[in-house]
């Protein structure tokens, strides 16, 4: 038997909205420690890793580990029926192939019950090494979204260069080119408005912008985003979900032929 309750449905609504264009089907691995999901997009170029710790839920019970394969678009259809302030409860037992979503209004005057059919999804699971990164950049998530969208109007790829003083995003295309340079900024009103650059060694990598733009759909989940880079390694774009976990996006680099 599995049961998990969130005080506000908004979080899960936003999480699914931010990943369902990249991956349409995914398996939620449930265990005593929480719910995890790991899935690659259809081109196997990017990967989403979601981790929701059990202690971040209002209530979390999983008698034994089990998997719930879901179509994220179908899940999103049901979550759209939840009010963002509704209490959200998920329930499933290994026996039947359904997961129940309960949406309870704040005044408890309305209780909605949706049952989603579960699916058998065979997916390659990838072992993601917990590596050290040559460069780690934290910045306001809205700023990162603006950068990738602005450069996306100039070219298809972005060259990211991190030195000890700044991080540079450069794009070029038919109409011309653009470079956006961000310097470290620590003394800000709110900590999440900081731009922090930790560089062990300089990096210079190229990535397809359309994936980074897609990742930035998660901007509403966290006020800041952390970008981790190492030469010739996939970039990690991480949105920390306060008190419960994270959504991490991985994207393989483009390599000069």
């Amino acid at each position: 038997m599995f049961e998990a309750q969130m005080a506000q449905a908004a979080l899960l609504k936003q999480i699914i909205e931010s990943i369902r264009e990249l991956i349409t089907e995914a398996t939620f691995e449930v265990s005593g420690t929480g719910m995890m999901l790991q899935a690659m997009d259809s081109s196997h170029v990017s990967l989403v890793a979601l981790n929701l710790r059990s202690d971040g839920f209002q209530l979390f019970r999983a008698d034994r580990p089990f998997s719930m394969g879901m179509n994220l678009n179908h899940m999103a259809k049901m979550l759209k029926c939840a009010g963002k302030d509704d209490t959200l409860t998920m329930r499933a037992d290994e026996a039947n192939d359904l997961v129940t979503f309960l949406f309870e209004s704040p005044g408890n005057e309305r209780l909605a019950e949706f049952e989603l059919k579960l699916m058998d999804i065979t997916s390659e699971n990838l072992g993601i090494p917990d590596a050290e990164y040559s460069a780690t950049v934290s910045m306001p998530s809205a700023e990162f979204q603006r950068i990738v969208k602005d450069l996306g109007s100039i070219g298809d790829t972005v060259e990211i260069t991190v030195t000890k003083d700044d991080v540079r995003f450069a794009a070029s295309g038919d109409i011309g080119n653009a470079t956006i340079k961000c310097r470290q900024l620590l003394d800000t009103e709110k900590p999440e408005d900081r731009t922090l650059i930790e560089m062990v060694e300089p990096v210079n990598l190229t990535f397809a912008l359309r994936y980074l733009i897609n990742f930035s759909k998660a901007t509403s989940l966290a006020p800041s985003v952390t970008i981790k880079l190492s030469t010739e390694m996939p970039v990690v774009v991480e949105y920390k979900l306060s008190d419960i976990g994270y959504v991490r996006f991985y994207l393989a680099p483009k390599i000069e032929d």
Partner: peptide
């Protein structure tokens, strides 16, 4: 021209 890599070479499949 640069070519897009897949994730497999970087992450071990298990």
């Amino acid at each position: 021209e640069s070519s897009q890599q897949a994730l497999f070479p970087y992450f071990a499949q298990f």
